[in-house]
């Protein structure tokens, strides 16, 4: 059987690939995909622990993660479309509404 640590290392590698993508890319669509990768990495960890501990809670939480991911994608892509309509491009540097003026 596959050791739990190996599953966790797999999850960690996946997560950090997603993280680096999120931090370095400029395209909003790519950022969303990076976030999806990170969420999937979390799911891998949850399933791995659920398998290892013999507990269904991990899988239930994975269901919730998927739900949140779906909601995030739906709203996020809607916003992305709005961005595109107003600017004609979807680059991160155009969106700095978090700045305190």
């Amino acid at each position: 059987m596959v050791p739990l640590t190996h599953v966790l290392v797999f999850g960690a590698v996946l997560f950090l690939i997603g993280l680096v993508g999120f931090l370095s890319r400029r395209n909003f669509l790519t950022l969303f995909m990076s976030v999806e990768i990170m969420l999937n990495a979390v799911n891998v960890n949850l399933i791995g622990f659920s398998r290892s501990l013999g507990d269904t809670a991990g899988q239930v939480f994975a269901v919730f993660v998927i739900t949140v991911a779906a909601a995030e994608v739906a709203v996020g892509l809607a916003i992305l479309i709005l961005m595109y309509r107003s600017r004609g491009r979807v680059l991160v540097q155009d969106w700095r509404a978090l700045r305190d003026n």
Binding site: L4, T5, L8, V9, A12, L16, L19, L23, G54
Partner: peptide, 22 residues
């Protein structure tokens, strides 16, 4: 940052070894 974090996470996992087998 990503590589550093990865190294740290794996370092944290390493001592667990095979103990958390199914």
């Amino acid at each position: 940052t990503g590589l550093g974090l990865l190294a740290l996470v794996v370092k944290a996992l390493a001592p667990l070894g095979m103990r958390l087998q199914p």
